[in-house]
Design a protein around this nucleic acid. Structure first.
Lengths: 233, 233
DNA sequence: CATTTGTGTTAATGTAAGGTTAAATGATAA
DNA sequence: TTATCATTTAACCTTACATTAACACAAATG
């Protein structure tokens, strides 16, 4: 059977470099969509599902980091690789903070790039088996649409959820009636596990509990030192 | 929160560099095991479970790549990061071929290293799906759910258990009707065997007895100087 | 049977984790 | 810019937990 080529979103403002890279990747059996700037990159990202995003850091109007953050709000899982001309330490750190999977300095060796792309896509492929594409949940009387970020009770008015509220509730729903470990949410959603992110998470748990009060059969229980449990009685 | 530190296997033959790196990592809350060569590294790898392996490429007798291959044969999942003094393209490619997760050139910035380690370990954290071990027990009229830490009598309201109560009852249940030696619980749960931990354990036995009173067929008997016995009549 | 050693039980204490609310900061859109 | 919303940080409080102390009693020992 024909296996679908992997799809790459390439966002690079330098037309020469961008075109060369695109062609090279396509020669190596990737489907590549090339956006010339951050804005266009985000538009194209929203319109399709990608296996990997390659973002130039230095672009006019919207730099790679800003774009990465927007992408992360829509999708916590898609691998992101940054391209940068100069390897400034602050940049690298910033990149990893927004959830970069790798970092490449221009000029880079094309074979090395291919290798890395392969490694990263493979990595994700194995991960994505478990919690693949599940975006709609029934939670007692609630419907959660995690793609459009709203929660509806008994077909009533939808409650809009913020990105963090949404991700957190989705993770809880994925583990309904079971333990959702603190650490999982912190590493997946906050990408860091320290005192403050932990407190931030507690704040969001409180917000979700407030929403879920509408249905007294639904509640979020705490398991001291372990995590939370979304139960439906 | 008593979350176990992440465990790193560091294989580095240069004693100075190795020790400095080990200390730095330990200062940042990682548990580090330092092996001085490839052979030793593989021995240590087999003896324990690690969250990450950091391998020097150039080592006498057994280089980092060979070691990585051996490690991959035992374990396809553990993240591997290579350290190398010079960034030779062939080396990098070879590294990715044996399944490297990242590559670092010496000298590298320590903050960047930390960031990468964090990113890599977090990536893997999400994969950890479920270890379907023995978590559910029937004890007379009781159901013990050791993962969610509750005890339920005859389908009634669940009684929440503290971590120590839970582990202790679980150990007793694993030896139902049989002797559960004091020493076993002390070393497994308290990780220490002295007067105070021993008294602490007695306190927990008392707590469990209180819970188990609901079913007069279930009791915890003491075997003087030996341990306890969870019996169901 | 007196002494030592082990266990039963309750209560007091100290610390860590979680709950809640509000203010501060950051980011985005009008 | 202001206005608005999302998120983090701070403060304060409550609850959960483990340990330790204290005293009682039981079992073993010689």
């Amino acid at each position: 059977m024909e296996v679908q080529n992997k799809k790459i979103l390439l966002v690079e403002d330098d037309p020469n470099f961008g075109t060369v890279l695109k062609d090279y990747l396509m020669m190596n059996d990737y489907d590549v969509v090339h956006a010339k700037n951050g804005m266009e990159g985000f538009e194209k990202f929203k319109k399709d599902d990608y296996d990997l995003c390659i973002l130039d850091v230095m672009m006019p109007y919207k730099d790679g980091f800003t774009l990465a953050k927007e992408i992360r709000e829509k999708n916590t899982d898609v691998p992101i690789v940054f391209l940068t001309a100069k390897a400034m330490k602050e940049d690298v750190l910033k990149g990893y903070k927004v959830g970069a999977d790798d970092y490449l300095n221009k000029p880079f060796d094309s074979e090395v790039l291919l290798m890395k792309i392969k490694a990263i896509i493979q990595r994700k492929a194995t991960e994505t088996i478990s919690d693949s594409k599940q975006f709609e949940f029934k939670i007692g009387g609630f419907d959660l649409n995690s793609k459009l970020r709203f929660l509806r009770y008994n077909g009533g008015e939808p409650i809009k959820l913020s990105p963090k509220e949404n991700e957190l509730l989705r993770l809880l729903a994925l583990h309904e009636n079971d333990l959702m470990p603190r650490e999982l949410a912190l590493t997946k959603i906050w990408r860091d596990d320290n005192y403050f992110t932990s407190r931030s998470m507690d704040v969001y748990i409180a917000k979700l509990r407030k929403y879920l009060k509408l249905d007294e059969k639904v509640e979020i229980l705490n398991i001291h030192g372990e995590g939370f449990r979304l139960v439906v009685n």
